[in-house]
Design a protein around this nucleic acid. Structure first.
Lengths: 229, 229
DNA sequence: AAATTACTTTGACAATGGTCAAGTTTGATT
DNA sequence: AATCAAACTTGACCATTGTCAAAGTAATTT
């Protein structure tokens, strides 16, 4: 046992933001209660209402979290990127999943069992702190989404979304690649795909952006932010 | 010191759900980093964007958490009732408050400093667990609100809201008292006050409810839930 | 490379819900 | 109790956004 090589799971876990800084023994313990899961594009990982299995760490790929409606439509709540965790909130409550999760790209995930996670948290204040920060972050993001969906018009929502994707060193002009399909983004913004398309067309017509498929060039970020109607 | 009577703050804290089960010494430590705050009805406790001071525990009264809009309107995000905590998410991030808090009744609160809270959490896995559960709960509630605001029509939102207020032993008929002003509830449901009023009128016209000020009598919960248009 | 499928755009139209204005009720304040 | 302000209701109107349909484009599969 002493000379055992680090398991691939431990290796993977050690590289995830949530677990960075943990000691090898702790990681090994968590790894013991975990398993790798692969999913291909479009696969449903779980449905709203399903009984939770544990927390998932997304290592590679992209996952869409959404609320299904009675009429078969959906509201996209969050897009998970590598390094993100999801299904964790449910570990601390005894409730079914509040959202549906679907892979939007081929995915590699780690499923950490409820029990291992709780044990790890009990023994490690730093991990608890990180977990609290992570949940708080999700709360803030959701509040932002709420703000976008309820207090803004369709144009403002799109402008807001584009502005959030601006590279950090804010030049007036920049190019972005939409992080998901236009339908998905439309749903995140609580817009019909048609409306999203029209707004982009409208902004392009006003000379503020150029749209080429998923690639969007913002020509003047200031004018864009101040655009009305 | 050994014979010191329990401070009123410790007394108060010990009765809050989050701190129930803690040992007296731990409570005393938290109390040392805390202070009582009183606020009268309509007083603003903090604004979105303000620098956070710590976590608040609502002991008595009612607090409205809302997102202000550029045009002076607001979206009510949550109504806090006694025993609830708020402003905690911000303790784990270094960000300004994401919402505005206003007393909607005369309030008694305890403000727990960031430092005391973090120290208490570091030393107590059970408290961490409770805190994680509390944040998870808020996340679930917000998701529910999101669902209500984005996937339902005005009537469905109101029906959903009324159904949530039904007493547990679900009889077909029950009476409820609205937990806040109609404008506030309308904002929570992302409806104009006029629309909320009209929907209530509509439901009353259909013989499903009776409205007398803030008191609403639901005449048939099943019919109400299945009501369309 | 062809074919099939999914995604996106555009147009015409309809409806839900918001806005404004005026009146009514409720509740607070003196 | 009288006055005032805030909350609520009702009506008329209209704007924004969703829906439906069809065409065009991109992407994937065989």
């Amino acid at each position: 046992m002493l000379t055992e090589t680090r398991s691939p799971l431990v290796e993977i876990l050690s590289r995830q933001p949530l677990f960075r800084g943990l000691m090898l023994e702790e990681l090994a313990l968590i790894a013991q209660g975990s398993r790798e899961i692969r999913a291909q594009k479009n696969e449903i990982l779980f449905q709203k209402g399903d009984e939770p299995e544990g927390m998932r760490v997304l290592v590679m790929g992209q996952v869409k979290l959404s609320l299904p409606s009675a009429q078969g439509s959906e509201k996209v709540v969050h897009m998970c990127e590598p390094g993100a965790t999801f299904g964790e909130a449910v570990v601390f409550l005894d409730k079914p999943y509040p959202v549906t999760a679907q892979a939007t790209q081929d995915c590699l995930m780690v499923l950490v069992s409820k029990q291992s996670l709780l044990e790890a948290l009990d023994g490690n204040a730093m991990l608890s702190r990180k977990m609290l920060a992570s949940l708080s972050m999700r709360l803030h993001e959701l509040l932002d989404d709420m703000e976008t969906c309820t207090l803004r018009t369709s144009s403002q929502r799109v402008i807001c979304f584009l502005s959030h994707l601006a590279p950090s060193g804010q030049p007036g002009q920049y190019e972005i690649l939409l992080p998901a399909s236009k339908q998905t983004i439309a749903s995140q913004l609580n817009l019909a795909p048609e409306t999203f398309s029209r707004v982009l067309g409208h902004l392009a017509g006003a000379g503020l952006i150029q749209v080429k498929g998923r690639s969007i060039r913002v020509l003047d970020s200031d004018k864009l932010r101040n655009f009305t109607s």
